[in-house]
Each structure stands twice: as C-alpha cells, then as structure tokens.
Amino acid sequence: MRILLATDGSDTAGAAVQFVAGFPFPSGTEMKIVSVIPRVLRDHEIETLTPEQRTVFEESKSGNHSEVEELLESEAALLGQAGWSVTTEVRVGHPAAEIVGAAEAYDATLIVVGSHGLTGFKRFLLGGVSNQVFQSSKRSVLIVRKPESECEGSRPELPARDGHLWRILVGYDGSGPSEKAISFCTSLDLDDKVSFRVLTVLPMVRLFRQDIRQELNWIWQQQKETEKEALEAAADRLREITGGVTTALTEAGDVSQAILAAGEDFKADLIVLGHKGKGAIEKFLMGSVTPRIAQHSCRSVLAIR
C-alpha cells in the first residue's frame, strides 16, 4: 500500500500524522509526506518586480522552503519512529491540485488529509483543502478530523499511538465500492487491536409516511432478507481474520444521518465507506451518501474508491 499524506504544519495536519502513525496499515506500507507552498505570485507578476522587490521575494521563498523542509523532516521522523518507511516532497502551487497531482505521480492507494470538523456556516465560508481533494481525486481519501467546538459533546479523542483499540465503523450496502471497503479492511494488519462494526442502513421513503407501505411490501421484505444475508457474509470476511466484528442493520429515512449517528453510538475512530463518483443526474436521482458524511462527520472518514 502506498500512502500520500498531505501536511501544512497545522494542528489538523499534525493530527493526521499522529493518526496515520498508529493506524494498522499492512506491513510494508510506504508513505510519502507532501507539503505544498501556495504560489503567491505568477511568473509574469514576478517579472514586473523591481530588483529589490525580487531579492526580498526570493529570500522569503527560500525561507519558506527551508521551513517546510524542516517540518517534513520532523513529521517523517515521527512516522519513521512508528516503523513506517517515509519519503518527503515539497511542491509549489494550488494546494488541493498539487496534492491530487502528487498522489497521481506517487500512484498512491490512499490520500490522507487533516481537516477541522467545520459545520454549517463556517464550512460554507471556509470550504477547505480536504474537501477539494475529496471532490477532485479519483483515489481513496482519508480525512482525519480534529473537530472544532461545534462537535463538542460528541468530540472523539484522537487515538493514542500505542495500545489503542481502534474502533472502525464500515458502511456496507452490497455495492462494488462497499465490497472494496471491506477488502480494504481485510488488508489491514488486524489482530485484537481493532474492533469493527459493519452497518447496513436500509433507506426508507419517509415522505408521506410511505415507509409504512414499504415495510408491508413483500418485494421490500425480500430485499431486506437479501441485505441481511449480504451483511453477514461481508462481516464473515472480516471475522476470518479478526474476532471483534459486530453487525447492525437499521432502517432510516436519511442514510447519511443514520451512519453519522451510528458512528457516534459506536464511538468510532474511523468511518469507512465505499464511494463511487456519480454524474449530476445520477447524484440528483440517487443522492450522495459518502460526500455528505465526509463533510458532516466529526469523526475521521475514509472513502474507498
């Protein structure tokens, strides 16, 4: 497995490093830490600078560069101490685009980014690099959350590096991407330090209380039985390699909310979901559960593509 970890020296990026250091990735996993220096001036703008301005600009650029290199060294050392093989890279440009580009060049299995658990208006105002990376990359993305005060009350503690029992909630709906999510989990270095809950949420049409008719429809009842069996089969794949696996099947009008609530209930360190990019019409028709959870969760989220 090849992991690309993006850092900018912030608290959230630090949390991502700490998370990755202790996470039970398979042995032999390689990591690259990348940091992006935002481009302040474009080439044609630099040409318009006076010689004095250019000297100040170059000095500041080189200062930035060495600061970032120092940061990368210290974070690489931290990961190295945890036993991972690490390389580093500094890039200049638009952060999200460079992170996605670096992941392509590195052929990363997974991109890891840190993010504040911003909610509501703050997220609308600030957006975020993690969200841009999630939206624009075709690779799996792990968003490590260091929640803001909005998530207070359900704020998860970041896992300690040693001896932590990882609690992982896996959303499963029988689709190809969710099968991949199960496969990802089975590829982890599992022993008794991980506890899984595999969750299937059956979507109900709550509008005009059609859920009541839905429950009485034998086609739906048959589908429910099939989903139950598929859920147990997925859980059995995990049980073959670790003991701590439970399952849950629930019905909800809003699948995303149900998964978020299950994450809180399970006190999950990580929510793992399959994610298939969809076109605009498909998004309108079928909705997009994973991006909503990635945006709204106060807990870390891994979207497997």
């Binding site: 979507p203 049409v205 509008l207 059609q210 739906w220 589908q223 028709l285 079928m286």
Partner: peptide, 11 residues
C-alpha cells in the same frame, strides 16, 4: 422521486 433515489421503485 424519493422511491427512485432510495432504490425502492416498487413503492
């Protein structure tokens, strides 16, 4: 529309 979105057009 809700039934299509949730994959239960039989409703």
């Amino acid at each position: 529309i809700a039934a299509i979105r949730k994959g239960h057009p039989e409703i």
